[in-house]
Design a protein around this nucleic acid. Structure first.
Lengths: 144, 144
DNA sequence: CTTTAATCGGATAATTTTATCCGAGTTATA
DNA sequence: TATAACTCGGATAAAATTATCCGATTAAAG
């Protein structure tokens, strides 16, 4: 479903959120330990998320990554997915046809629409805040 | 969602089905022209589908590929997807965790279940027969 | 029996994705 | 002002996916 990079990105965002929620800043080493991901590869993904303003990076000693508290509720999973994997999951033909719409549909077009709407809805509705609450409350886990 | 190989596989299966439905046998050249796919790569995918008994291959002159008529209604899209992409779309954690279940869920676990069930349902319900009817009837298209 | 038209399957190449390396830049603090 | 603890970003490497090449095999038909 998601690329490896996107999985790391989602987990990293949630990890950062759990700290930001408590007013703490975290850093690369802590994040990749927390989500069990390769450090340097994770760094690239964090840079990408930072350039796209989903997280705020602070350089230098005691630096690291954080998310503005007021953004925790605003950032939805779909924002993260689109930043890393683009929107290929949400637009375009399920069979990879260049042209495919209701007037000239591929054979799975109509069936696919429902799946896609469902996926879009779930990812659009789920905020980082909710995720990080679950993790901080011991209801969900990042590292298994 | 699906790998390129899987997209070609799905399209190829539908292409073969449209011919088999009419009692005709088709071949690699015709298929890859029909679905606009690279011939040799498509050949590999057809071999895979053949080894897994989803299609029947006939070697030699006038050979090619066909699907038993009685199988057109039995083969579902999910069978093709599982043959080519495996079941990674249908099992395992959406965030790539090794252990993730209702008792120790990842943060998106519960939300993901619905999406996955929906996807599984649609792909399990849709038969090749239905797809090929749509294409033969001009209601759907493979090559755009 | 030879030619022709097909699939089979191993090898290789190209591209994309995943992962790592490392020097440069930034900032807190002693 | 020197050092330590960070991120930044370009370069490279490794692995997986996508794609191609080509000789071997199979079978129909002249």
């Amino acid at each position: 479903m998601f690329s490896k990079a996107c999985e790391y990105g989602l987990k990293a965002m949630i990890s950062i959120a759990t700290k930001s929620e408590k007013g703490q800043r975290t850093n690369l080493k802590e994040i990749s330990k927390d989500i069990n991901s390769p450090e340097q590869f994770t760094a690239k993904i964090l840079q990408q998320l930072s350039r796209n303003k989903l997280i705020h990076s602070v350089q230098g000693a005691h630096g690291g990554f954080e998310i503005q508290k007021e953004n925790l509720g605003k950032i939805k999973l779909i924002d993260i997915v689109k930043t890393i994997d683009g929107d290929k999951l949400f637009v375009g033909c399920g069979l990879g046809l260049n042209e495919c719409d209701a007037s000239k549909p591929c054979p799975i077009h109509h069936r696919f629409i429902g799946i896609r709407e469902n996926l879009t809805k779930v990812l659009s509705e789920t905020s980082l805040e909710k995720m990080s609450h679950d993790v901080n409350g011991g209801l969900a886990f990042l590292n298994r």
